[in-house]
């Protein structure tokens, strides 16, 4: 089917991952940030580079980072989920109740926690993907609902009766120094990288995030995919609940209060576009490390957590705003140099 008479030339097929692309990427910025955190942390506190301190601090942010992995996928597909911390609270409570009243062992408790999380996620998924309600208000609603159920059942009490085999999960270390939650986070990060960037599912995910209707017309089961991602995110919150509950050895309705903001900060700082379609899991993992070690550096300097959130907020806005300001500034600079007629 030739219309013009020039010999049709082949389109070049460059490799999909190029060095140039990586150099210009978000990841590089994040690695720079991470280096700055390490340099600053080392300069401000002699204990920062202590390997035990470093590794120990991973236990705290790994729970949040696990939820960030799932949330990243939800945001890439143009949805949003701000109910993860509440799902965590409800999963934690259900495990607590199961332990208190049924006296279950560690394995069934973990399974119950995961199942509760997945179930909560499926509720979100049903409301958003099946009924077509907007994700932001649905998850604002379930954020209240899930934590509210925990609060309603437990009041201002707490459950601290967990079997030792269960609380051991929060105190186990690989090679005696790497917290189990961090190990699981790193392993799952690899799984998520593969899932997102190297499978058909991942391809569908980006197609959906860039153009939901176009993806549907291309044969992607868009609603099923969105439902699955919300469920997966719930499952990740359930997993985070297992680690957090085990680490604390108890559960209260206000457990993980406000963590959803940290989760979303990690995802956005990691370069996932809030309008969907763009982002990498490696970026999110790096962002988790940046925030996690920043927290360590700040804590070692006896700065209270209440001030840490100022840094997190500045990091979130700055990481998005600075490139935009840079672009605007470059444009102005060009204008000044070009004489106008």
């Amino acid at each position: 089917m030739s219309v013009s008479h020039e010999a049709p030339a082949d389109l070049p097929a460059p490799p999909t991952l190029s060095v140039g692309k990586i150099l210009r990427s978000r990841e590089l910025v994040l690695i720079g940030l991470l280096a700055m955190v390490f340099i600053g942390g080392n300069a401000s506190s002699p204990w920062f580079l202590d390997i035990y301190n470093l590794l120990d601090s991973t236990a705290i942010f790994s729970e949040i980072a696990l939820m960030a992995l799932g949330t990243a996928l939800v945001i890439i597909t143009r949805d949003i989920d701000i109910s993860m911390a509440s799902i965590l609270a409800l999963s934690s409570l259900v495990m607590g109740l199961a332990s208190q009243h049924l006296g279950l062992g560690a394995v069934p408790l973990v399974l119950i926690g995961l199942a509760t999380g997945a179930l909560c996620g499926a509720v979100n998924g049903t409301l958003v993907a099946r009924l077509g309600m907007p994700a932001i208000v649905v998850t604002i609603g379930t954020m209240s609902l899930f934590r509210g159920i925990a609060a309603g059942i437990l009041g201002d009490g707490k459950i601290a009766e967990f079997p030792t085999a269960f609380t051991a999960i929060g105190q186990s270390y690989l090679f005696g120094m790497i917290p189990l939650s961090f190990v699981v986070f790193i392993l799952l990060s690899v799984v998520f990288v593969v899932l997102t960037h190297f499978t058909v599912l991942g391809r569908n995910l980006f197609a959906l995030g860039n153009n939901p209707e176009g993806a549907r017309y291309s044969g992607v089961r868009t609603n099923r995919l969105r439902f699955l991602l919300f469920t997966l995110n719930g499952l990740m919150a359930g997993l985070a609940a297992v680690f957090l509950t085990a680490r604390l050895g108890s559960t209260r309705p206000d457990i993980a209060m406000g963590l959803e903001m940290e989760v979303i900060t990690m995802v956005v700082l990691g370069g996932v576009s809030i309008s969907g379609g763009k982002g990498t899991i490696t970026g999110v993992v790096l962002a988790a490390l940046v925030i996690g070690f920043l927290r360590l550096a700040v804590t070692l300097n006896n700065v209270p957590g209440n001030i840490l959130i100022v840094f997190t907020g500045l990091l979130l806005i700055g990481s998005v705003a600075l490139p935009i300001i840079g672009e605007k500034y470059a444009y102005l600079f060009k204008l000044m140099r070009r004489p106008r007629n």
């Binding site: 389109l11 999909t16 980006f206 197609a207 860039n210 153009n211 176009g214 993806a215 291309s218 763009k278």
Partner: peptide, 15 residues
């Protein structure tokens, strides 16, 4: 509906 504009030609043809 016809294409996913931000994605590459390869991605679009393959999807």
């Amino acid at each position: 509906q016809g294409a996913i504009l931000p994605l590459s030609i390869r991605d679009n043809i393959a999807l």
